[in-house]
């Protein structure tokens, strides 16, 4: 069966193609560009920064983990996630499907049991299996949860690859360092993917700050993302290859961009140090913070006003939800399809 994102289902562009302007070249904007271009639209992306994916996509973990997210998110996130996982594996290179590992310190085992009750798609594994999957964690944990069908990617590389594909294969025009609403609106449809910047139009959007860091160590290797549960300081480690590890992420109810606090770094570092002491000697390559756009229910939305479609509220689920939302946005524009799971109102009569 073909997935909805398979290139062979694409429609060639014709002379009277739909002209689509996409505002924002983060994960939402780029996946929307792809979805519209594949339907035969003539797509232009405008981005105020100097390159693709330099907003909060830049700081994403890149875990394609619908089952793990199911523990704390609504079922719709997992549904969008399964579709998006397939999309990424087709659309860009280097999306290893090594699964995810969820672990806890012995005193936090109640959190591991709780996690297991809230989701599916895993197996309980013992110390032998943990050591077989991740040899460097041998002897450190007695039990854990293994989610074999999940995958991960490196967000910056993935968005760079997607950008090249859009330009080379789909003839998408990208204008960087450009303002989205510059009066030059010959577009039939505008897709607003500005994230939190769209708060000027979407008043119920709020920011949720996330902080992360990247460590470099040759003393430890991991094949897959590892989540360490803790009642107050849950942390995840995503291997980025070449000895790099992305550690994330805090979730703080404010919209303060860029400022990383000592307490957050202390918490993330002590959690990762508890996973393996080698991280104590690791080099800090990068620290970063940005603000995720979220609606009050922390679920993503498509909204249509006139000829503008807003794709927003992806919260912690940018890479997990964007491709599935992008496909829906294109179907909304081309076919008028209504998607109640991600739309507040029915716009079919418009």
């Amino acid at each position: 069966m073909l997935s909805p994102h398979d290139e062979t289902t694409a429609t060639p562009r014709t002379a009277n193609a739909m002209r689509v302007k996409i505002v924002g070249a983060g994960v939402a904007g780029l996946t929307c560009a792809h979805a519209f271009a594949r339907r035969g639209a003539e797509v232009t992306i405008v981005e105020r920064k100097a390159g693709s994916g330099q907003g909060c996509s830049w700081y994403a973990g890149g875990m394609l983990a619908p089952w793990c997210e199911r523990e704390s998110a609504e079922p719709i996130i997992a549904e969008l996630g399964f579709e998006s996982l397939d999309y990424w594996r087709e659309a860009v290179p280097d999306v290893p499907k090594e699964g995810s590992l969820v672990l806890a310190q012995p005193r936090d085992l109640p959190d591991l049991r709780r996690f297991s009750r809230r989701t599916e798609g895993y197996e309980w594994i013992d110390d032998t299996r943990i050591a077989a999957l991740e040899p460097d964690l041998e002897g450190r944990f007695d039990q854990g949860l293994f989610f074999p069908t999940e995958a991960h990617l490196e967000p910056r590389k993935a968005l760079a690859a997607l950008t090249r594909k859009l330009v080379d294969e789909h003839h998408v025009t990208i204008r960087y360092e450009a303002e989205g609403f510059d009066g030059d609106d010959a577009a039939d449809v505008v897709v607003d993917c500005r994230g939190l910047a769209a708060r000027d139009q979407l008043e119920d959007l709020r920011g949720v700050k996330g902080e992360m860091l990247v460590l470099y160590s040759t003393e430890i290797a991991l094949k897959r993302p590892v989540r360490m549960l803790h009642p107050r300081i849950p942390v995840y480690i995503v291997p980025r290859g070449d000895g790099h590890f992305m550690i994330g992420a805090t979730s703080i109810e404010n919209d303060e961009r860029g400022r990383v606090t000592g307490r957050s770094m202390l918490e993330l570092l002590s959690a990762v140090y508890a996973l393996h002491p080698a991280f104590g000697e690791a080099e800090i390559v990068e620290i970063g913070a940005d603000v995720r756009p979220a609606f009050p229910d922390n679920l993503p939305r498509l909204r249509r006003r006139g000829n503008t479609i807003y794709v927003n509220g992806l919260y912690r689920h940018g890479f997990l939800a964007a491709p599935a939302l992008a496909r829906r946005a294109a179907e909304l524009a081309f076919d008028g399809t209504h998607f109640p799971e991600v739309m507040d109102e029915d716009h079919r009569e418009w």
Partner: peptide, 9 residues
């Protein structure tokens, strides 16, 4: 934060 930036919540 530094500028009472939790206003939305």
């Amino acid at each position: 934060g530094v500028a009472k930036s939790g206003q939305s919540f």
